[in-house]
Design a protein around this nucleic acid. Sequence first.
DNA 1: TATGAATGAGGCTTCATTCAT
DNA 2: CATGAATGAAGCCTCATTCAT
Lengths: 199, 199, 199, 199
Amino acid sequence: MIGKKTAPSPPHPRKQRIIEAAVTCFLEAGYHQTGVRDIAHRAGISLGNLYNHFSGKEAVLAEIARIEAQELEAFRTLLAAGPDPKATLTRFVEDYAEYAARPENAVLGLEILSEAIRAPQIATLFSGNRAGLVTGLEELLEKGARTGHFRAFEDPRETAGLILDAIEGRALRVLLKDAKGSAKTTLWRFIDAATQVKP
Amino acid sequence: MIGKKTAPSPPHPRKQRIIEAAVTCFLEAGYHQTGVRDIAHRAGISLGNLYNHFSGKEAVLAEIARIEAQELEAFRTLLAAGPDPKATLTRFVEDYAEYAARPENAVLGLEILSEAIRAPQIATLFSGNRAGLVTGLEELLEKGARTGHFRAFEDPRETAGLILDAIEGRALRVLLKDAKGSAKTTLWRFIDAATQVKP
Amino acid sequence: MIGKKTAPSPPHPRKQRIIEAAVTCFLEAGYHQTGVRDIAHRAGISLGNLYNHFSGKEAVLAEIARIEAQELEAFRTLLAAGPDPKATLTRFVEDYAEYAARPENAVLGLEILSEAIRAPQIATLFSGNRAGLVTGLEELLEKGARTGHFRAFEDPRETAGLILDAIEGRALRVLLKDAKGSAKTTLWRFIDAATQVKP
Amino acid sequence: MIGKKTAPSPPHPRKQRIIEAAVTCFLEAGYHQTGVRDIAHRAGISLGNLYNHFSGKEAVLAEIARIEAQELEAFRTLLAAGPDPKATLTRFVEDYAEYAARPENAVLGLEILSEAIRAPQIATLFSGNRAGLVTGLEELLEKGARTGHFRAFEDPRETAGLILDAIEGRALRVLLKDAKGSAKTTLWRFIDAATQVKP
DNA sequence: TATGAATGAGGCTTCATTCAT
DNA sequence: CATGAATGAAGCCTCATTCAT
């Protein structure tokens, strides 16, 4: 399973604790509703000490975004790996859907996206994340199109973006109880139909 | 064009002014970064007076969500209208993509979605909106499948949701400069491929 | 029974409604916690209209104090009435204790007293009320002392004040559940002992 | 002299400053008329910092009530002390009358009592204070009755309460200029008459 | 590193009162 | 008499951040 846990290579365990606390808080209350005090308290450290590790509240969010970026890296690897494009796509859709549906990823992604619209620093990170994933998927689509596994795409990058949109959008709707978490096959069938070779 | 402007029938012009001011503020700064003072000031009224028209800040957001709901109603009408399912779908995708890509709708939608996760009152409204749209699209898909315009869907509701996700997701990416606003044909081709009858 | 109802001679029934509403509000929430809006709403009139009848919030309280004053008048009459000082005192203690123990009188008295410390207008009214009662009781004590029903008091006015203090203090304690409402005989025995002729 | 000053053992001098500032403010303007800003300003600290020491305005009042409680403890000691009940009572009446008549005690007591009617936390404290004092006095009365110094009381607790009411009531009237502060002997004579053995 | 007191601007909301209708 | 929108100062409290220890 991909992205199950953040990389177990903590250069600074205290920093890790803070991040975990922040994630929990942001998840429960949202970014703006969470106070720096809340994070420090949940991390079991003093308020002032938090500033010895992060320059401020926004830096904590940025770090979380950076970690998400690392996790997404794994998916790029997956996309580049297999010999069979169709199988790789199947595997990716399944795994990424699972990843995106986890509350900590769905909600935090939303919070980060929300911030990204106005905070340039975060927007850059966020776009970078997405762009990497899109590029990976784009390359897979192109390869598959060349090998005859997929239809020929006029704009493979856009198509890649749309596939991710579908996956992530569904994840959010599951979170809001607007969709059943079980209907994963429909998602795949949808993407499959949108990519398969026409007669 | 659908949903271009809210109906110019202000039973209470002052309330309307406040809503417009709030929309502008939320758009510029985001919901949480906007103060009630900002809204009142932008609306040209005193701070306290705002509370004669709305019970609080959240009520203003809720009212905006309700207006969005009204606008979405128009799309339901569109979906139910035409005799040719495929043409109706084309028209819908085009219009709704245009609607969703407008910053005031994209950004506000994001803000509202963000709030919906924790504020039940808004969540209800939000889900209601979506659900209506999904149902409309679902019925169109089913009709089209029966008439042979679309392939047979195993889970038409889920499929409808996925189509909306793709449209809305792309709109957001355009806003974040992660996608070119021009590539609308790819969106349609994507949805077309996902819905068309297989050989 | 004395002071059971405010005099049924309302020169202005609307004013009466407002007063009743205010009394209820002050009782429930306290003077400062009660808003003018609350009073108007409870009285079933509009906010602005209240100002057609009273010059402001404090004026409402002053009117209540004035009504209390009227009610206390009745007790002065009682004190001056009877031929037998001891019987009159008994009767007075009984009635006044009952009057003071009613929540609307006890709590409102406290609110008014609280205000009286800083609002001169109310202080005057309040002191006037008390003074009248004290004088009445003082005269009764003096008469009784002359007729041999009571002991000779060095400072009858002070004694009168102390008797009232005891009655009113007990009433408040009953309200705070610090005293049983039933132990009225003790009150009388206490006052009786303090006033009776020594051997 | 009892209760003259709170013990000069400030484990937290800043908290002490705040309390003193609050007492001054409440005395001058009353509890509800005093703003948290006023307290902080008078204490010479910033507004926000006050909340590092107290959870809110009411907590400040509660702390004051708690300090009053401590001061009353001293009177309980006095009541339990002496061998001669009558002398002890004399001493107590004198001291407690002096204590209750000091403006900071009389006015604050009134403010606290006023709040106690609606704030349960404060009501508990307040009742606790009173109850302790009443019990102390009650035991003194009973002892004195057994030793023949006082008459036999049917309900010594109620009698104790009435004595306190008289003392405190008079203190308030002095504050309101309704009584001369000098007439202390009358108070004692009143209580003496109410407690002494009958022929 | 670690603490938590200190800051003061800002948060949302309620206030008593006025005034045009 | 009656209405309720309008005012803006003031209400209590929380905020992210700094700094002396």
